[in-house]
């Protein structure tokens, strides 16, 4: 699976990372190397192997539906880069 610069551009966009042409070229090279290394996994036959998502076998961890204190509005907004009347402000979406 050869990785192209177009792939890297697509991925950068998906990941919301602004990249220069220079970076695209560099990342394409580096990611291709890493992916090539990863390809060795294909040497293993995993046709009948179940994927392992969690290292440990735990299930059904639930909590009670009991109200816990929230932060104050001031605490919520304290790290906000731009806040306005109790909200986080963001630039226009479209």
């Amino acid at each position: 699976m050869a990785l192209s610069e177009k792939d890297v551009q697509y991925v950068a966009k998906l990941a919301r990372l602004e990249v220069t042409d220079q970076e695209v070229a560099k990342y394409t090279q580096q990611l291709a190397n890493i992916l090539e290394y990863v390809e060795q996994l294909n040497k293993l036959d995993t046709a009948n192997v179940e994927p392992l998502t969690h290292p440990l076998d735990v299930k059904n961890v639930f909590r009670e539906d009991k109200v816990q204190p929230s932060l104050t509005q001031q605490e919520v907004l304290s790290n906000g880069p731009e806040v306005q009347s109790g909200h986080f402000r963001v630039p226009k979406i479209m």
Binding site: Y10, L31, L41, L44, V49
Partner: peptide, 26 residues
């Protein structure tokens, strides 16, 4: 981030992520 985004992106999930989860079990 880009490597991971690629591995999870449409069309590559099985080849990378799922494969890795299977080898993880091995």
């Amino acid at each position: 981030i880009m490597l991971g985004t690629y591995a999870l992106s449409s069309g590559y999930y099985d080849a990378y992520y799922l494969k890795a989860l299977k080898v993880r079990r091995l």
